[in-house]
Amino acid sequence: MNYTLHQLEIFFKISQLKSITKTAEDLNLTQPAISIQLKKFQEQFPIPLTEYVGRKIHITAFGKEIAITAEKILNQVANISYKSQAYQGVIAGKLNISIVSTGKYVMPFFLADFLEKYPGIELTMDVTNKNEVIKNLEENLIDFAMVSVLPEHLDINRIELMRNELFLLGKEYPNNTKKTLTAEQFKSLKLIYREKGSATRQAMEQFINQHHIETNKKIELVSNEAVKQAVMSGMGYSIMPLIGTKNELKNKEVQIIPVEHLPIVTNWNLIWLSSKKQSPAAIALANYVKENKTEIIKKHFSWMEDKSFLS
């Protein structure tokens, strides 16, 4: 066999993206170049790696096995490069972080200057719901997770980052009154929920259950962005994190509806398994966040404290 690392990289990327076009875009190559390298790689094996159903490419069972091996080889090659840099005193390597969907409004601000300081670090950040984030952490697939609800069944280390406040948001006040809503008034609202597995949904349901509020009208949507757009359109009301609605509140596209016992206040945390042997890149990030979090919060999130733009 005479395949190259470049061909391994291309085939592994195809196995991930299931698309020649997307692979070409991701690797900054032309589609014909990807197809030629895939053909040359396939010629090394007597068993098909891919098959087409209609116009869509699929990876065969054998191809999936090869993709797993290709990933291991590519990771080992990358580790050689990282170790070489480490011997020269350069912190380098891969970082895998999984964050809950609302965390996308927070975590990038803790990473931007860090990645500029350590250009040898390669970052992969997965944005999903709480259940998937915890699953990734539990299965040791990631270096860090960012959550607002800590997993009680796991032994973790954590760095507390900043407050997370959840308010009831709506396009306008119910019944044109700006008074604090009673439980009876809250009951009559058409509520928009996140999907099951979301920390925002969990917080909303806990609030409703703790205060014995019966709700009848319900809409369920996947992602905070979908919920926010639905609220802006007037479809209903939702308890949502303040962090993701700054511009919409400032532009009067949505409003905070006062409700007794709101906001719900939690904290964002950067967490990792206590048993995990951290890489130099992971240690560098943990130290960086600890040392710089106060300055980062003051620089990017001071608006959450004064809320002057809401008046």
Score class of each variant (00 low, 15 high):
residue 121 I to L: 14
residue 266 T to K: 11
residue 50 T to M: 10
residue 206 Q to M: 07
residue 271 I to F: 09
residue 274 S to F: 02
residue 26 D to V: 08
residue 57 I to S: 07
residue 294 T to Q: 14
residue 130 K to G: 12
residue 165 E to K: 13
residue 141 L to S: 04
residue 250 K to H: 08
residue 145 A to K: 06
residue 116 E to Y: 11
residue 302 S to M: 06
residue 262 L to N: 03
residue 83 K to L: 14
residue 54 G to R: 10
residue 261 H to W: 08
residue 104 K to T: 05
residue 245 T to D: 09
residue 82 Y to F: 12
residue 143 D to P: 01
residue 220 E to Q: 08
residue 200 T to D: 01
residue 215 T to L: 09
residue 244 G to M: 02
residue 266 T to G: 04
residue 84 S to C: 12
residue 25 E to W: 05
residue 181 L to C: 04
residue 162 M to L: 03
residue 200 T to K: 00
residue 311 S to T: 05
residue 178 K to Q: 11
residue 178 K to T: 06
residue 108 P to G: 02
residue 170 G to V: 07
residue 266 T to C: 00
residue 182 T to M: 12
residue 63 G to R: 07
residue 54 G to N: 10
residue 152 E to A: 14
residue 302 S to E: 14
residue 311 S to V: 01
residue 160 E to F: 00
residue 101 S to L: 00
residue 6 H to D: 09
residue 3 Y to T: 11
residue 159 I to C: 04
residue 77 V to T: 15
residue 265 V to K: 15
residue 4 T to E: 06
residue 62 F to M: 02
residue 129 N to W: 12
residue 111 L to N: 06
residue 17 L to H: 12
residue 100 V to G: 00
residue 24 A to G: 06
residue 100 V to T: 15
residue 167 F to M: 00
residue 20 I to F: 09
residue 104 K to N: 09
residue 178 K to P: 00
residue 137 L to D: 04
residue 115 L to R: 11
residue 181 L to K: 09
residue 108 P to N: 03
residue 217 K to T: 11
residue 251 N to L: 03
residue 230 A to D: 04
residue 171 K to I: 06
residue 224 N to R: 00
residue 66 I to S: 10
residue 34 I to G: 01
residue 251 N to E: 15
residue 76 Q to N: 14
residue 23 T to N: 01
residue 157 N to C: 01
residue 83 K to T: 09
residue 30 T to A: 14
residue 289 V to M: 04
residue 213 I to L: 10
residue 161 L to H: 02
residue 296 I to L: 06
residue 150 L to E: 07
residue 70 A to M: 08
residue 147 V to L: 12
residue 122 E to G: 08
residue 46 P to I: 05
residue 146 M to V: 11
residue 154 L to M: 08
residue 260 E to H: 08
residue 144 F to V: 00
residue 12 F to N: 15
residue 30 T to R: 08
residue 22 K to I: 06
residue 177 T to H: 05
residue 109 F to M: 00
residue 23 T to M: 11
residue 236 G to Q: 01
residue 205 E to Q: 15
residue 33 A to D: 03
residue 218 K to H: 11
residue 105 Y to W: 02
residue 135 K to G: 10
residue 169 L to G: 01
residue 27 L to T: 13
residue 239 I to T: 00
residue 274 S to D: 10
residue 248 E to T: 10
residue 288 Y to V: 10
residue 51 E to N: 13
residue 187 K to A: 12
